[in-house]
Design a protein around this nucleic acid. Structure first.
Length: 571
RNA sequence: GCCUCCAUAGCUCAGUUGGAUAGAGCAACUGCCUUCUAAGCAGUAGGUCGUGCGUUCGAGCCGCGCUGGAGGUACCA
């Protein structure tokens, strides 16, 4: 992989005006194409050299010896503007893509392990639309980290423990639910969901139920066999449906170690906290004080002795460190839980674990939908339709299918493709902006083929595939004439392809799939423009252009995959 | 009260770590299809970067204050 930045740095450093690292730090990519590909501001030197920046730039321009990959250096108003040699760009970028294929721009394995904890839904409930966020951000991050050289462990930290199960069990038994194996086997999440809402309703009239649920959960914790049996059945029923949806979205996990998994590791955690004299009684419960960090106490154990979220997360963190010896552990969980993670990480710090600083909460904003009055709110859809993820996916697929029926009714597997485009559209809509801002979800703009959408990006990929299919030709390096790929449209596209590695790296360093999503849009735009301006099939330049088309398709396919979108070939 | 996140075109958002004249998309208006998916491309119009100070050669970006919105803040997760 050649780095134009490094070539420039080396060339400039030979003049002794800047060091290589200074150049690399100052070098930027100008917005104006007339300002070249890279720009070096000379203002910082003005004081040191007691000269006007404009003069410095002019002098440096005459002194710099250009390497072959650069065609020109031009001083403008105190900037040194560098221009890449177009032919060299084409040959270096395309040769590399040809050699590395889908892995172009990926980093070599670095031997480090990263844990990504994502999706993590609650057992007993169906996936709701908002679960898409953690699931797709985490899914994309795990692919991005892998492409950045990490070994990735994907963990689904299921919410399969807690008072909620007391509620479910109480309600199930109250309703006269069967205890026969077959009946338990046939349970569905849907039924469990109904039990939940039934419980909420019933407990309003009979507040004593809340207490009953708490008692049942405590017994479950103590190992009551009937409750265990029900709990297992509830979990099984939920996982069945979860896996159906994950499969549909092409999301997978290496571990389904939920909260219950850590149940028997909790005594050891409590013991350790006690040993290190961190556990304090406060208002009838056990806490770890975090005053020195200006944080409220971390609650470890309730007054009735049962455990809390934080306790289980501590046990999970200790287990993961021991089991995987990670360099980094990410929690893809919504913004509202920032305080919780801050507290847990600080407890680890107080326990003397230096690796607490490798624990990262990756927060994200909520999904908002517009009410009839035009206000953005959490929760229900405008028409009051279901907010279950499976229903949203189905609705998205149907909308896309109607579109395909209109534009390309003879398409094979159109139902399946429509679902994949629908899921990709929802995913892209979730990933295209910075994580921390709320997603303002709008059906029409998310599923549109125009603008910054999944379908738009997929369409670019489809068009590239379509050209390759019709050409029925596999591009060979010996067929390409780099000189042909130097006009504006080709050159702009090549510049974009050249940035793949930098964009993967940026997405990884900032834990922001949005950086890659924006890049996918850039590729799509440049690709659409290229095939619009430069006729490929049947033109005298056909072979060289096909080479660029194929390379672009390969880059785009991989970027789509890293985002967790389906790289559709026909639509 | 305290803490966190957010504020950029009518709407939804980018902004390469402090660089040149702040960029896209949607909506509006105008062009371009007997040619590889017009599911596309090109163009016009649209801005006091919430606000006031400060830091410096230079601030949408960094610091402090203020305003407005969202969330969190002891026995849910």
């Amino acid at each position: 992989m050649i780095s134009f930045e490094h070539s420039i740095a080396t060339a400039v450093a030979k003049t002794d005006a800047f060091s290589e690292t200074e150049v690399l730090q100052l070098l930027s990519i100008p917005q104006e194409t007339t300002h070249g590909n890279f720009s070096l501001p000379c203002f910082a030197l003005a004081k040191k050299m007691r000269k006007a920046p404009k003069l410095i730039a002019e002098e440096l321009a005459t002194q710099i010896q250009l390497p072959k990959e650069l065609s020109k250096v031009e001083p403008v108003n105190g900037y040194l503007n560098f221009f890449i040699d177009r032919s060299f760009l084409a040959s270096s970028v395309l040769t590399e893509i040809q050699e590395e294929g889908l892995l172009y721009g990926h980093a070599k394995p670095n031997g480090k392990t990263v844990i990504i904890d994502f999706s993590s839904p609650n057992i007993g409930k169906e996936l709701a639309f908002h679960h898409l966020r953690s699931t797709m951000i985490g899914n994309s991050l795990s692919r991005i980290y892998k492409a950045s050289g990490y070994h990735v462990e994907r963990i689904n930290h299921l919410g399969d423990w807690g008072t909620a199960f007391g509620k479910l069990i109480v309600m199930y038994l109250r309703d006269g639910g069967s205890l026969e194996e077959e009946a338990l086997e046939a349970l569905t999440v849907k039924e469990l969901n109904i039990l939940y809402s039934a419980f909420s309703k019933a407990s309003l009239e009979n507040p004593e139920l809340e207490n009953e649920a708490r008692v049942v959960f405590t017994k479950l914790e103590e190992g009551d066999s009937l409750y265990r049996k029900l709990w297992t059945a509830f979990k099984k029923a939920t996982l069945k449906e979860l896996n159906r949806i994950y499969k549909m979205m092409d999301v997978s996990f290496d571990h389904y170690t939920g909260e219950s998994f850590f149940e028997d590791r909790i005594p050891a955690v409590l013991e350790e906290l006690r040993e290190k004299e961190l556990l304090v009684k406060s208002q009838e419960l056990d806490v770890v004080m975090l005053d020195e960090f200006d944080l409220p106490p971390c609650l470890i154990r309730k007054s009735d002795g049962s455990t809390l979220y934080a306790t289980r997360d501590l046990a999970a963190a200790l287990y993961r460190k021991k089991e995987f010896n990670f360099t980094k552990c990410l929690y893809v969980v919504d913004l509202g839980q920032s305080l919780h993670f801050k507290q847990v990480f600080h407890v680890l710090k107080k326990m003397g674990y230096d690796w607490h600083k490798n624990m990262h909460h990756i927060p994200f904003g909520v999904i908002l939908q517009q009410t009839e009055e035009g206000k953005w709110e959490k929760g229900k859809t405008r028409s009051g339709k279901s907010n279950l993820l499976r229903d949203v996916i189905e609705a998205a697929g149907n909308k896309i299918l109607a579109f395909i029926d209109e534009k390309n009714p003879d398409l094979e597997n159109k139902k399946e493709i429509a679902t994949q485009i629908g899921i990709s559209a929802l995913t892209f809509n979730d990933l295209k902006n910075r994580r921390t801002i709320d997603v303002k979800f709008d059906w029409d703009s998310a599923l549109s083929f125009d603008g910054a959408t999944g379908p738009y990006v997929q369409n670019a990929h489809v068009r590239l595939c379509s050209i390759m299919r019709k050409a029925n030709y596999t591009a060979k390096i010996s067929d390409a004439d780099w000189g042909i790929l130097t006009n504006d449209a080709a050159y702009e596209l090549l510049k974009v392809l050249q940035r793949k590695s930098a964009n993967i790296q940026k997405a990884c360093e900032t834990d922001e799939p949005s950086a890659l999503a924006q890049y996918a849009l850039e590729i799509a735009e440049a690709a659409h423009r290229f095939i619009h301006q430069d006729r490929v099939l049947g033109s005298p330049e056909e072979k060289s252009r096909l080479f660029l088309v194929q390379s672009t398709q390969v880059v785009l396919e991989n970027v789509l995959t890293l985002l967790g979108l389906f790289p559709i070939r026909q639509m």
